[in-house]
């Protein structure tokens, strides 16, 4: 990791002083680009960024998240998406355009405690994130095992173009739904496969910063 482009940084570390564009998790002080979180700095043609190794999930438009319904008003559900903001799921999204607050009972579709796979539609500083479940792979999750990992490790779990997660899915025949917010649902008919998939996910979380992780995971999955 000791090349010029990638470096381990902590808040306050000066990454570079060149004429680069500050991207994620960096700040500009004069002409110095400074890291603002613990992570790995990357300098590319279009800017400087730091991939965080810790931290909370910050909602981003079009992210797939897994959330738990915590309460509802007469017009919308509030969903805990493992972030500092609650997700707002409007009732019209589930009941359709002819939703009426008198006639339709929200709890008939989604109740407190239900898990849902949702997508973030819109999020800005002024309002809580708006989410939707109106898509093919979205909606209420009926079964599976819920695992929570650090949201900063999610990209590693998915791997380059999904390579890591495909490896795990192929080896265990499990279906794994990954929320960008660090919540993961694993379902598998075979209990051995389920345990193995969970073990693999835990291993990826713990060793996210290691090189050659895909090979290690493969090795673990193939043993026994």
């Amino acid at each position: 990791m000791q090349d010029d482009k990638k470096r381990y940084v902590i808040p306050g570390d000066v990454i570079t002083t060149g004429p680069y564009r500050p991207d994620q998790n960096v700040t500009l002080d004069g002409n110095r680009i400074i890291a603002t979180v613990i992570g790995i700095s990357e300098i590319s043609d279009d800017g400087v960024r730091v991939i965080p190794l810790t931290g909370m999930y910050i909602p981003k438009s079009s992210d797939l998240v897994i959330g738990k319904v915590v309460s509802h008003t007469s017009l919308s559900w509030e969903v805990d998406i493992n972030s500092c903001y609650v997700g707002i799921l409007p009732a019209a999204d589930v009941f359709g355009r002819d939703f009426s607050a008198h006639a339709d009972e929200l709890t008939s579709k989604l109740d407190k405690g239900d898990l849902i796979a949702a997508r973030i539609v819109n999020f800005d500083r002024t309002r809580d994130p708006l989410i939707t479940i109106a898509d093919r792979e979205l909606g209420k999750i009926e079964s599976g095992t819920l695992i929570k990992i650090s949201p900063s490790k999610v990209p590693r779990l998915i791997g380059k173009r999904g390579s890591m997660i495909q490896t795990v899915e192929m080896a265990t025949h499990a279906v794994i739904t990954i929320g960008q917010n660090g919540l993961i649902v694993v379902s598998c008919d075979d209990s051995n496969g389920l345990l193995k998939a969970i073990k693999a996910i835990r291993m990826i979380e713990e060793e996210a910063h290691m090189a050659n992780l895909t090979d290690k995971v493969k090795e673990m999955l193939e043993s026994r």
């Binding site: 808040p11 306050g12 002080d29 979180v37 810790t54 909370m56």
Partner: peptide
């Protein structure tokens, strides 16, 4: 605070 991943200008 750094361990929690809260963005900081400096330690």
């Amino acid at each position: 605070l750094a361990d929690a991943g809260i963005p900081m200008r400096d330690m």
